[in-house]
Amino acid sequence: MNRLFIYLLTTGVFLTATSELIIAGILTAIADDLHISLGAAGQLITSYSLAFAIGTPIVVTLTSRIGQKRVLTGALIVFIAGSLVAFASAHYWLLLLSRLILGVSSGVFLVVTFSSVAKLVPTEKTGSAIGTVILGFSSAMIVGVPIGIAITASFSWQTIFLLLALFSLLILFTLIRYLPDIEGDAPVSFRQQIRLLGNPIIIGGLFLTFFRETGTSIMYTYLTPFLQTILHLKTAEIGMTILALGVFGVIGSRLGGSLVDKWGASRLIFAGLAVHAASVSLLPAFTASVAIDLALIAVMVFAMFATAPAIQTFYIQLAPQSANLLLGINTSVVHVGLAVGAGMGGLLANETSTVLYNPWLAGMLVALGFAAAVGTVSIRKKAALASQARS
């Protein structure tokens, strides 16, 4: 039965993730409809990320002691409201407001879902459960976004948000009716929270997340230009490539969750980051072969998604009683890294007038993430040995 609840929450993550990712695919349609510039439309993505990064840890911390079923349903209610605001948006400022609402509610739902599924399964199955949730996010890339683009072409971009609200309403009723009560985190004082965040193991983990996401964004934000200008793929070929990469992402997240349970979070983090850094760094060396570069990009995407369940599991294992707090902050760092990476990648592309060198910069940042992971795990092992010696 718990597996059914996990799939139900994963469906909710699919819907909330679609609301985040779809905007990039329909920017032109929104700009034309609201009579705004493409740059102004792009701020809809920025505003969502800022709301996600800033609002999520605040709300998660304030609600950490509340039963997680109540937080999940509350977040979904706010998400539905945000979707309806987007559906009714005839003006830019109203759509911008909806992005702020959707950013916070989606972030809270995602973080609390991670924490909840970890409490619904035995400890040895945490990785698989987290991998299933991430499957919802990766599925939004390969299913939700293309469907949203098709809906925009056939009806309007507003229709997407109406459908998201309606399907979320079904999920909400099902959660209220069937999801069992899941206890919140143990009470943690403000002083304990500060002490927790001052833990060098956690600080190292956050640096790992930041470097990894920055490196990912440097390459992934400019993946389409790379495929167009470096590998010279046509528009239809790029569409099929993105779809295929999404499939690799889905496989990676599913397999990654299973491998966490077998190998442990640390080993999978090491392996995933090493493969990620190597595959992306090799891209400029093999641009003469489209097949080799596409294979390397597929390996990169697989490694990205396979590592994600391990990182989430790592935080849950570090402080099970404060999982919401740590996952919320980690999620904020993810969005900061994505924003910084997009900026760094753009600066490099502007300075060199090409995206050929973006993979090298991306590989360097992911390698820094690997170094942060090594340092973090080393500190954790020393702390464990010291604790054993004292006992």
Rank of each mutant, 00 (worst) to 15 (best):
T307Q: 13
A323W: 09
E183T: 15
V374N: 04
D185G: 14
L327C: 05
S332M: 13
L120H: 11
A274V: 12
R267V: 01
S83Q: 01
F52L: 10
I130N: 12
V340R: 05
S289H: 11
H91G: 05
A88V: 03
L72Y: 01
N199L: 07
I238A: 02
M219P: 07
L206T: 04
A386P: 01
I149Q: 13
S189K: 10
P359N: 14
P359E: 14
L135W: 12
L227D: 11
M1W: 01
I269H: 03
I201T: 15
F109I: 13
V145F: 03
V13C: 00
E351Y: 11
R191S: 15
S266D: 13
L365P: 00
I149S: 08
V275Y: 02
G272F: 06
T46Y: 07
I22D: 03
S217G: 06
S37R: 04
Y7A: 01
I242M: 15
I134Q: 11
G205V: 09
F305N: 14
N358S: 15
P146A: 02
L294A: 07
I201S: 14
T61E: 05
S19L: 00
V355E: 10
H232W: 11
S217W: 07
L326H: 08
T209D: 03
V111G: 06
T46Q: 06
F155I: 11
T10C: 00
T224H: 03
A319V: 06
S115H: 05
T63H: 01
K119E: 10
L97N: 12
I203C: 04
S37A: 04
I36S: 02
F173C: 13
V334N: 13
T73K: 00
F14M: 01
F161H: 04
V145L: 07
W157S: 03
A88D: 09
P180Y: 06
G363N: 09
H232I: 08
M219I: 08
T235K: 10
P225K: 08
A373D: 06
T152C: 03
L110E: 10
D181F: 09
A319Y: 10
L233F: 12
L97E: 11
H91K: 13
A41T: 08
V355N: 07
G252Y: 02
Q388K: 13
V59D: 00
I54N: 02
I329P: 10
T241S: 15
G136I: 09
T221N: 14
L245G: 06
G252W: 04
S47A: 15
R380N: 14
M364E: 05
S266A: 12
L110H: 06
A118N: 12
G204N: 07
V260G: 02
F52M: 13
W263H: 01
I101R: 05
S266M: 00
R65H: 05
Q192K: 15
A288M: 12
L100M: 14
L365N: 04
G343T: 13
N324T: 08
L97Y: 10
T63P: 04
V355P: 07
I77W: 06
K382A: 14
V145N: 06
F52H: 09
F286G: 11
L368R: 04
A129S: 14
V112G: 08
S387T: 04
G252P: 07
L170T: 13
A277F: 08
A244V: 14
V275F: 05
N350Y: 07
L227G: 09
S19Q: 02
K69E: 08
A383Y: 06
S49T: 12
L172I: 03
T16C: 03
L4I: 09
R3H: 11
Y357E: 15
S49P: 02
T224Q: 10
H91P: 02
